[in-house]
Nucleic acid binder design. Sequence first.
DNA 1: AATGAATGAGACTTCATTCAT
DNA 2: TATGAATGAAGTCTCATTCAT
Lengths: 208, 208, 208, 208
Amino acid sequence: MLETIPQSRRERRIAARQAQILDAAAHVFSQKGYQNATTKDIAEAADVSEGTLYNYFANKRDLLIGVARAYADEVITDMETIQPEGYEDLLAQFMANRFRRGRERRLFMVFLYESRWNEDVRQYYVEEAMHHIIALTEQHIRDLIARGVLREVDPAIAARTMSATIMGFAALFELGISVNHGSPELLGTQVTDILWNGLRTYGKNGRD
Amino acid sequence: MLETIPQSRRERRIAARQAQILDAAAHVFSQKGYQNATTKDIAEAADVSEGTLYNYFANKRDLLIGVARAYADEVITDMETIQPEGYEDLLAQFMANRFRRGRERRLFMVFLYESRWNEDVRQYYVEEAMHHIIALTEQHIRDLIARGVLREVDPAIAARTMSATIMGFAALFELGISVNHGSPELLGTQVTDILWNGLRTYGKNGRD
Amino acid sequence: MLETIPQSRRERRIAARQAQILDAAAHVFSQKGYQNATTKDIAEAADVSEGTLYNYFANKRDLLIGVARAYADEVITDMETIQPEGYEDLLAQFMANRFRRGRERRLFMVFLYESRWNEDVRQYYVEEAMHHIIALTEQHIRDLIARGVLREVDPAIAARTMSATIMGFAALFELGISVNHGSPELLGTQVTDILWNGLRTYGKNGRD
Amino acid sequence: MLETIPQSRRERRIAARQAQILDAAAHVFSQKGYQNATTKDIAEAADVSEGTLYNYFANKRDLLIGVARAYADEVITDMETIQPEGYEDLLAQFMANRFRRGRERRLFMVFLYESRWNEDVRQYYVEEAMHHIIALTEQHIRDLIARGVLREVDPAIAARTMSATIMGFAALFELGISVNHGSPELLGTQVTDILWNGLRTYGKNGRD
DNA sequence: AATGAATGAGACTTCATTCAT
DNA sequence: TATGAATGAAGTCTCATTCAT
């Protein structure tokens, strides 16, 4: 809630240092996961000493929470800036934005996993980011149904199905399981096609 | 008769003890994840000493591999015993079988995550189980397309979409994100409905 | 002091089993040293179970002592059977007998080392075998001096010098430090030549 | 000036701490041998925590190598500083320098033994130190033969005989086998006398 | 008497965290 | 504020020894 621009030079320096450390932590976590990452790794990546980490974050877990929070903010912003006209390729755009970069996919996996053992990660990542995304998606779907674009599915179910499919594909990508001849973008289009056909009405957008 | 069932009392005792330890390990891993689980935890859950673990498994990683292998076998058997007549609710049945129990869902998440850091888990779980499942699904879809039940989607894409959606829902469940008024079975049905509609043809099974 | 021939079949069987285990232990100790050798190694080499070892020997240390005692007996017997006429090549013969086989050299090193940490090994190997050998050598030297063959060195010093040189060469051999063009036998001859020249008188055997 | 002496205070502190730990390790290894020594022992002797050991050495084996290397350096320096005029009592001086202190003798035994199981100890101690010593000795002997002081023995054999005798005496000392009425210095003189007589010519230095 | 699975003490090692400089 | 050496709790793993079969 203190999301204002830091006034003093001191505050700006602190914020910059925090961001520098968080970025390093995100990098290391995405490469090694939370447990395998050492504070030494993170300090080296951030080009500070280990001791300095503890001047900005209470402990290693706090670093993970910081990364999760930043990631959640980014996801929400990303989601909200997708233009309403793009309803049909909502998934495609979101997938492209989120999972084009391996680092984002891997971080996503880390949060997904660690939120089971870490209440705060769950708080920041799951509660805030994912619920937010799902709520937005649900609203979109509700609108589309009202406008007759989509058939009358349960919007809650539909929104969760979309999220689940996206998450699942991120995992498949990370596991190296994917169609060999498809780029991320092409894949996104094809997946969207299937889900979209599962959801839409068949008056105006009949099969070709 | 001589192949599958251990002959001597000694061999039976060893197999039983191995199973006992693997079961304990599966339990602990599903509760704590791999890294948070200690060999002490597992030994206590198996009601043996820590040293005994090492009479049956080379190291902690080997325990995880053992659990993954057993899980993979189970998944494949499960998949193969689903009756062909149940094509339409293939997903529903599989989801119900696999993810009705929280322990299975949680183990699935553990394997999904650990396979990134552990080549053997990837080998046993991803390579053998998931590829197998996807291949089977792909074949089912191919058949259904040939019989005109499904429209002409790319079977590879479709099979992966199904897997991704199932995996994603397992994750959502674990995260506590799901429709509050739905049982796993009802959920499965609804999800299936969406995907099914995204895949089927619209001649005989047109919308009502 | 019970060095009689076992009467009953039972006693003979016990003695045979003990010998079998001791031989295995000697083999393993010579290959791996005492600390690196495991009771499992020894049991496998002896083709018995680990438990059986403990029916014949109180503990692992007791196995080492048993091997040391047997080795000491052998050394003493060996030493005593060298013919008196062979005075001049006493060293050569003894070196050849003792250290021709790598196993003997390596066991020697093991006893030498372990006797520092193990009072019983010191007792059986050092006290009994080495003191015996040195005493015998000393007596030989005393005789040779009395007969005018050797010059009037201190027999105690001379005997210890001989032992030290032999031991040292065994070590050099094990370390792989030796003259590349010499066989053990040739080496023995040359070493003997040097020591012998250091000890003998120069009336009848003057330099040529 | 910039090479041998650490510049900064930090580097000096690190070097001092390393030396402190190595000294403690040398002490413990000489008392207990390598295998019997625990990292706990060494940490206590160095008056640091066990964890601190691992800030300076990768593992226990690395500590042994560090001690061996320091010892080897010391031996070589020692050997090289013995004055050429002292040819005749080369052994006596070297023995006195090396083995007057029990700790040196015991460490020597530890390296001798452990180099069989530890490639790096062999590298640092045997390859570098012992080969060096033997080569130097061989050269000395070669010179003495050329100058007619020693008779025409094989210099390689003679050098190895000297080394072997010294090593053997170190072992005898450790085993408590030695002439009871002799000091190390007197012993050294007597041993030298024997070897010397075994090597020298008999023109100018004939027996009296 | 023989077996070998079970035991558990204790070894080595890692690493998040602290704190003197 | 920054540093990074020191810490020590806690983890994994080994292996001599025991004991029920």
